[in-house]
C-alpha cells in the first residue's frame, strides 16, 4: 500500500490552516476536511495520518470524526444527494422527492448506486426552508425542487451532464 500523505499543495495549505489556530488540536476539523478533499473519505489510515500531523492521539481524532455527519467514514457516490426531510421540506414535498430517487435510481436512504454515482441520505434542516424542498448535492443547494425538476436533474447527472447543477442553483439567491 502506498503511504498516506498530503499532496505538496495540500501540505502548504495544511501549514496555513494550522497557523490560524491557537493550538493544532483546534485545526482538526479543517484538516479533516482537507483530507476528505484528497481521499474522498476518512479511512483509518487517513485518521492516523492526520493524528500524526497534528500530534494528537488517533483515538481522539477518530472520536471527533465519528461525531460529525459531514465527515465521511466511508466513501459516498460521486453525487451525494442529501435530502432534507425536516418540517418545512416535508410539508412541501420531500417525500415525493424520496420517491423519485427510488424510481430513478432505485435508491433508499443510506444506499449507493452500483455504478458508484449516487449516494442518498436524508438530512436535517439545511437552513433553506424558505425555498423548500431542498436537496444538497455535494456542496451545492438545489432549492425550490419539485418531482419533475428533480427527475430531470437526476437524469442529466446520470449521463454525466453536471452543468445541470449550475443551472438549477444559479439565480436562486440573486
Amino acid at each position: 500500500m502506498s503511504s498516506t500523505e498530503f499532496t505538496a499543495d495540500r501540505k502548504e495549505r495544511f501549514k496555513t490552516i494550522v497557523a490560524k489556530y491557537e493550538q493544532p488540536s483546534c485545526a482538526l476539523l479543517p484538516v479533516l476536511y482537507l483530507a476528505q478533499e484528497q481521499w474522498g473519505y476518512l479511512s483509518s489510515s487517513v485518521l492516523e495520518y492526520v493524528a500524526g500531523l497534528l500530534g494528537l492521539p488517533v483515538a481522539h481524532v477518530a472520536s471527533t470524526a465519528s461525531f460529525y455527519v459531514m465527515l465521511k467514514k466511508k466513501p459516498t457516490g460521486k453525487y451525494w444527494l442529501q435530502l432534507c426531510n425536516n418540517v418545512s421540506c416535508t410539508m412541501l414535498g420531500s417525500e415525493e422527492l424520496l420517491a423519485v430517487c427510488k424510481e430513478e435510481l432505485g435508491l433508499e436512504p443510506n444506499q449507493t448506486t452500483g455504478d458508484g454515482l449516487f449516494t442518498l441520505s436524508c438530512v436535517q434542516c439545511l437552513g433553506s426552508c424558505g425555498t423548500a424542498p431542498v436537496v444538497q448535492i455535494n456542496d451545492d443547494y438545489v432549492e425550490n425542487l419539485n418531482p419533475s425538476l428533480f427527475r430531470k436533474l437526476l437524469q442529466r447527472l446520470k449521463v454525466g451532464d453536471e452543468s445541470v447543477i449550475g443551472e438549477m442553483t444559479k439565480e436562486m439567491h440573486s
Binding site: 493550538q23 479543517p30 476536511y33 494528537l56
Partner: peptide, 25 residues
Amino acid sequence: VVHRGAGAYICGEETGLISSLEGKK
C-alpha cells in the same frame, strides 16, 4: 478566522460550539 462546522445541531449551543472549535466532539 472563518471556521466550518461539520454537520451537528448541538454545535449551535455555545458550549458545544466551544468544544467543537477545540477539535472535540
